[in-house]
Design a protein around this nucleic acid. Structure first.
Lengths: 246, 246
DNA sequence: CCGCCAATTAACCACCAGGTGAATTGCTTG
DNA sequence: CAAGCAATTCACCTGGTGGTTAATTGGCGG
């Protein structure tokens, strides 16, 4: 889409040319992403996108044909970027939680669009690809679980949903987070608190820590293994969650 | 609001009167609740509400003055109903998780409205009352924790958010749940699966099950207390989650 | 039976937002 | 320099929506 056919970019050096379709498209995409994430498909105004992109509104339809197509284009791009970060999910539970927290809060717009999508109950945009992507991630989790890196009593699918839930929720329902803690969920105070919590939670859930009723596990059996949550950092050691509050 | 001043309801017996403001108001509220939950404030159409209520559109403005006021009225009612269920949260972790799952899935509309609210980034409707309510719930959790009913390494605030996250997320992001599990999050299959998961999770996290590295806890100290997850049902015993898929 | 007023209805309005037709203008090429 | 075409602009159309004006009607008190 987005017929980017600017002929021989001569580009008089030093002077930005007045006409440049490629640049216009890029600006429109950026502006539209902001608008769509902020207000959803129905709430987003083409006028506002154009203004934000410093471009005539007509150009939006010239480049993309319709609001719908522009939306699909943007979702497609977002998904492409997403698939990479998804597949880099760590294999241990605690690091996975912390990794996801960082990912989620570093790309709030993508998750806001997911939330709009959740409410819009329309057809998903690239359902096939996304389902495939999810299946791969789950499959990897399942293999890891077979290798004892993950507690066996939890199905990987549920575990994955739980990881998403615990990392996505505070930012997805900021009003509830604020009502409960009095903190801004995107602010550093809450993020530190939540990181610590996720760390403690992960530690409790990682494969090495079995519930107390299996009493024999506390005694024998590879003594050095009882605390062997390998890459699991203790919750105190702050993992640099370098995501700015934007 | 909603000037319900129908004079002396004579109500010819057996014959429903053609004019009845009270009834009209009730119908409008019900219809508006459905519409607002389904499409959010901006997306909801007064026309559609009126049609659903089998009432002239004008009556909406006659009764409530504006879309805004009708919305506020509905939110107020929802909150009132909500506060009761909130305060009945069980004190143990596992029952709390299961209770919340039931509550959430039995009143999907309220949570959908919360989600719309989360995205609308406007002023909250009854912020004072809601913050007060939250504070009470958290305070109760804190007291329970002091009495050892809840694992002490988790702050009650974070714990509460986690409970909400784990119960609300699957229904709030149904497309993700479906992509991961292939199941409809409101369907009985997924709910059974999720209930089992929450049960197992709660068991792992309840106060009695300490991580392996606190080795001394497995030996001395009130021997009958090590497995004392009192009302915590084992995850197998299905708690009847009698919420229909609507 | 009549008058009165609340409940209800029909028609209407102003406005906004997506989308379009057609003119305009700046590069680029011959 | 002139032609030609792509990139950009301007004015406009259309449908739908919240909200309103004014007419109508049903039921109750007198």
């Amino acid at each position: 889409m987005a017929a980017t056919s600017n002929r021989g970019r001569t580009a008089s050096p030093g002077q930005l040319p007045k006409r440049n379709l490629e640049r216009t498209v890029k600006r429109l995409v950026a502006a539209a992403e902001v608008e769509f994430a902020a207000r959803g498909f129905d709430g987003a105004r083409t006028e506002a996108m154009a203004r934000r992109a410093r471009v005539n509104k007509r150009m939006l339809f010239y480049c993309f044909g319709s609001k719908q197509r522009l939306y699909r284009e943007i979702v497609r791009r977002k998904l492409a970027a997403r698939s990479r970060t998804l597949q880099q999910t760590p294999d241990e539970l605690t690091p996975a939680l912390l990794y996801w927290q960082q990912v989620v809060c570093s790309d709030g717009r993508a998750w806001r669009m997911m939330q709009w999508e959740a409410l819009s109950n329309g057809r998903l945009v690239a359902e096939r690809d996304r389902a495939q992507l999810m299946r791969e991630v789950i499959e990897r989790l399942r293999q890891r679980q077979a290798h004892r890196a993950i507690a066996p009593e939890f199905e990987p699918e549920s575990l994955f949903i739980a990881v998403m839930a615990l990392t996505v929720f505070p930012g997805a329902f900021p009003q509830l987070t604020r009502l409960v803690t009095g903190l801004n969920p995107r602010g550093p105070e809450f993020r530190a608190k939540w990181t610590a919590f996720l760390g403690a939670l992960g530690e409790r859930l990682s494969a090495a820590n079995r519930p107390g009723r299996h009493r024999e596990s506390a005694r024998g059996k590879a003594p050095g293994h009882t605390t062997a949550n390998g890459p699991t950092r203790p919750p105190g050691s702050r993992v640099a969650d370098g995501c700015s509050a934007k």
